Computed example of a mutant assay.
Amino acid sequence: MTGNLAHLTLAFGLLGNVVSFMVFLAPIPTFYKVYKKKSTEGFQSVPYVVGLFSAMLWIYYALLKTNVMLLITINSVGCFIETLYICFFLFYAPKKARMESLKLIVLLIVIGFGLIVALTQFLASGVTRGVIVGWICLVFSLCVFVAPLGVVRQVIKTKSVEYMPILLSVALTLSAVMWFFYGLLLGDFNIAIPNVLGFIFGVLQMILYYMYKNKKPVADEKITTSEAKNSEMGQKIPEFKDQKIIDVVKLETLMHSDIPKDPSNVPSHTIEVKA
Rank of each mutant, 00 (worst) to 15 (best):
G3T: 08
A6Y: 12
L10D: 10
G13Q: 04
N17E: 14
L25Y: 06
P27C: 12
V34C: 09
K36R: 15
S45F: 06
V49T: 04
L52G: 09
F53M: 06
F53P: 03
S54N: 07
L57S: 08
W58A: 02
L63C: 04
L64M: 01
V68H: 07
L71D: 01
N75P: 03
N75H: 05
S76R: 04
V77R: 07
C79N: 10
F80T: 06
E82A: 13
T83K: 07
F88Q: 06
F89A: 02
F91Q: 07
K95P: 09
A97V: 11
E100M: 11
L104D: 02
I105E: 03
V106H: 11
V106P: 09
I109P: 01
G112E: 05
G112N: 06
F113K: 03
T120E: 00
Q121S: 13
G126M: 08
T128E: 14
F140I: 04
S141I: 00
V151Y: 07
I156F: 03
P165N: 05
I166N: 08
S175A: 11
A176P: 05
F181I: 01
I193K: 01
P194E: 00
I200V: 13
L204E: 03
K222D: 14
E227L: 15
K236R: 10
I237A: 12
E239I: 15
I246W: 05
L254K: 11
H256S: 15
I259A: 07
K261E: 05
K261L: 09
N265A: 14
S268C: 13
T270M: 10
E272Q: 09
A275C: 06
